[in-house]
């Protein structure tokens, strides 16, 4: 059990480092790669928490598809000049310099907060169901909502990514 907890802690530490790299990195592209790395670590944690189907979704969609979308968006925008990069990095360092300090303060506060072990979880009366059965039989409205959201998203993408000449605007 101790090794189980320590592996989880190690993975969580890697996740936090990836998150910090994402947030504080200079380049947008590196931030996107940091986000993909965070998703990959979250995937491993989901596998370790007995949720393989959600982990597969996280890996394929969040690590793959969202990274591709972000990289495409970044590649369609204008790259900055060296002077602008230097100015922006100075400004960013000034604004994001507080983040590690904030995290350390919150970590210390969380460490000293003593949470009483009185969270009551209702006992499981029914046996664990198969996730596919839950999705298709019990949560059909969720599936319908997902289909509607995906269709609306596709329409939104078609409209927003549509190429137009500047004089038309």
């Amino acid at each position: 059990m101790i090794s189980h907890i320590s592996i989880n802690t190690l993975l969580l530490l890697v996740m936090l480092i990836a998150v910090l790299w994402t947030v504080m990195g200079r380049s947008l592209l590196k931030a996107t790669i940091g986000l993909a790395l965070t998703s990959a670590v979250v995937t491993i944690l989901m596998f370790r928490l007995n949720s393989p189907l959600a982990a597969v979704f996280e890996l394929s969609v969040c690590t793959g598809l969202i990274t591709v979308v972000f990289v495409s968006t970044i590649s369609l925008t204008k790259p900055l000049t060296n002077k602008e990069i230097v100015e922006l990095s100075k400004e960013r360092n000034k604004r994001f310099g507080y983040l590690p300090i904030l995290l350390i303060v919150i970590s210390i506060a969380l460490t000293f907060i003593r949470i009483r072990n009185n969270i009551i979880i209702p006992p499981v009366t029914t046996p664990e169901l198969d996730v596919r059965r839950v999705m298709w039989d019990m949560r059909q409205l969720d599936m319908l909502g997902q289909i509607i959201v995906v269709i609306i998203g596709a329409l939104g993408v078609v409209i927003l990514f549509e190429e137009r000449r500047r004089d038309e605007w």
Binding site: S51, A54, E58, V61, I66, T73
Partner: peptide, 24 residues
Amino acid sequence: TSVTQAMVITIIVIEVVVAVVAGG
């Protein structure tokens, strides 16, 4: 885990649509 996995899959689908539309 089965119920939460179903919910998380819903969240992931919505998340990707939000990301794509926000990128647009």
